[in-house]
Every structure is written in C-alpha cells, then in structure tokens.
Amino acid sequence: MTRESGSWLVSAGLLAAAAAGSLVALTRYWQPCAGSIGAISFTDGCLVAMDEYAPPLIGQDPASLVGALGLAASLASAAAWLVVLPTIRAGVAARALLALPGLAAVAVAVWSATLAPGADGVPGWTLVLLDLLVLPAALALAALGLGGARLVRYVLVLLAATSAGVVHQVVDLTLALGLNQASWDSPPGSGVPTALAILATAIATLVLWRTAGRAQSPTASLPRDTSSGSGSPTIAVSLPS
C-alpha cells in the first residue's frame, strides 16, 4: 500500500467516525423530541432542545457526552481533509490555501468548545467563512491539474470538512423542515441529514479510491532471469492512490 493510499483510507475512517459520533450525539440530543417527527405540538423539553440546537457542538457543553461527541466529530471531519493534503503536489502558497478550510473548521470547533453552556454558538460570520473558503480551495485543486473522479474525491472530503458552514446548515434545515412543522426554530432531527451526508462521503471516498485502483490495471513486465535461466515473469501490481 502506498503512502497516498493510506492517507485516503485514514481520511475515510475519520469521516466514518465523525458521522457515527454525530449520529450518536444527535440521537441523545433529540431524545426529548422522540415521536415528534411530523408533529405540530411539542413537549417543553423538545422546545428547549429546538431552541438551543447550534452546530458544530449541537449547542451543548463540551464537558457533556453530546458536546464532546459533537466536538470530536467536528475535529475528525476537519482532520479528514488535512490528512489528504500531503497527497497533492503543490507549492507553499497553494498548500496554505488548501489547508485554510480545514484549519478554519478546527478553529470554529475549538471556539465553540470555549463558549459558556447555553450560549448562542459562534458568530454567524465564522460559519459563512467556512463556506467561502471552499470555492478558492476547489478552484486551486482544478488549477493543479486534478480532474475527474480524483477531483471529486478531494471536493467531497473538503465539503465534509466544512459541514458546519452556513450553506450546509441551510440545506440541513430545509431537509429537516420537510419532516416537521417547526419552521420557527431548529426542527427535531436537525443535523441528521448532515451526519448522513458525511457517512455517504466516507463510503464514496472508499468506492472512488477502489475504482481508481481498478482503473490502473496491473502492469506486467516479463524480464528473463538470466541467472537461473528459468524465464519466470515478474509481475508489478500498482495499488490505488
């Protein structure tokens, strides 16, 4: 296994861990709203949960299980992007530009962890910044000559790393609102679409990595073993990158 292959496997593992942690945290967080999907009235506990929900720590104290899982998931998804950066051949300036989204995601998660319990979350501009950093990074990837399925792999992981961004949250909210009537607040189940999208990204990353390996057909060279005269072929197999 090449070093690049290892990086992609680690990245997919981090995304899967982030998705699992988020789903566990969200299940516990929305427990007061159990049975409220599609409802038009909610319990007091559910209303409090709807009011306090705020990514990326799901509006919880990081000392709590839910908050700790939310923090760990945010850091894992950001790390999933940072670990694949060494697989890209680029200059110092390009590497810095590509690293910014992941580093910003880490900063937002850590900042969230320093807020007092019950706070409204990090300022909205930080979540906007996460999404604004995605476009120049994606353009930089294309400018570096990446294309096809390889470019798709990088962009998918980049989007997962910045899942706390405001555009992601608007999409998440829209999907959650499709199952609830709570249009005045974060509806029960908010965050679940994002977690499922991260899980799908982990799976897609593995599939694309494996597909790339199959596309690179094993290359066989048949040099003669002059020392033994056996003429045994030597097979060189390329692993996916």
Rank of each mutant, 00 (worst) to 15 (best):
A119E: 11
V171H: 05
V110M: 14
V171W: 08
G213C: 01
D172I: 09
R214C: 02
V155E: 00
A138E: 12
G124M: 05
G124T: 11
G148P: 13
A200W: 01
A202Q: 02
A109P: 03
A116C: 04
A176M: 07
V108L: 10
Q181N: 15
V110Q: 11
V207Q: 15
T174E: 09
G121W: 01
S186L: 09
D225Y: 04
V166T: 11
V170T: 02
L133D: 01
A113Q: 05
L130C: 12
G191D: 07
D225K: 04
T174P: 02
S221H: 12
L146W: 00
P187G: 04
G165C: 01
D131H: 11
L130E: 12
A200M: 05
A195L: 10
P188T: 07
A182M: 13
R153G: 15
W209F: 09
D120A: 14
V108D: 07
Q181F: 15
A116Q: 14
G178S: 08
V207N: 09
V192R: 06
L175I: 15
S221I: 08
L173E: 06
A161N: 10
D185V: 11
V128N: 02
A200V: 04
L130G: 08
A138W: 10
A164C: 05
G191K: 05
A215S: 06
L199G: 10
T174A: 12
A138N: 08
G213S: 01
L141Q: 07
T174D: 05
S163P: 07
L175C: 11
L115A: 09
V192M: 06
L132A: 06
S163F: 12
P187A: 08
P223V: 10
V122I: 03
V155I: 12
A142W: 15
A109G: 06
T114A: 14
G189M: 02
R210T: 06
L173C: 06
A197N: 00
L115W: 08
R153W: 06
D185T: 12
P136Y: 06
V134M: 04
P188A: 07
A119L: 04
L132E: 02
W209L: 11
A119W: 06
V207W: 13
G191N: 04
A109L: 06
G147K: 13
R150A: 11
G189R: 04
A142Q: 15
D225P: 03
V110H: 11
G147T: 15
A220I: 14
V207A: 15
Q169E: 14
I198K: 02
A212Q: 11
V122W: 00
R224P: 08
L179P: 01
W111F: 15
L179N: 02
A195W: 14
G147A: 12
P193A: 02
W125I: 11
N180P: 05
L127R: 13
P193T: 03
D172N: 09
G189V: 04
V170N: 05
L130R: 10
L139K: 13
V108H: 07
S217H: 05
T126Q: 10
T205G: 09
S186Y: 14
L206G: 15
V134W: 01
H168D: 06
P188F: 09
L129Y: 06
L196D: 05
L139Y: 12
G148W: 12
I203L: 15
A202W: 00
V167P: 01
L222A: 07
S190Q: 12
G121D: 02
P136M: 04
L158V: 01
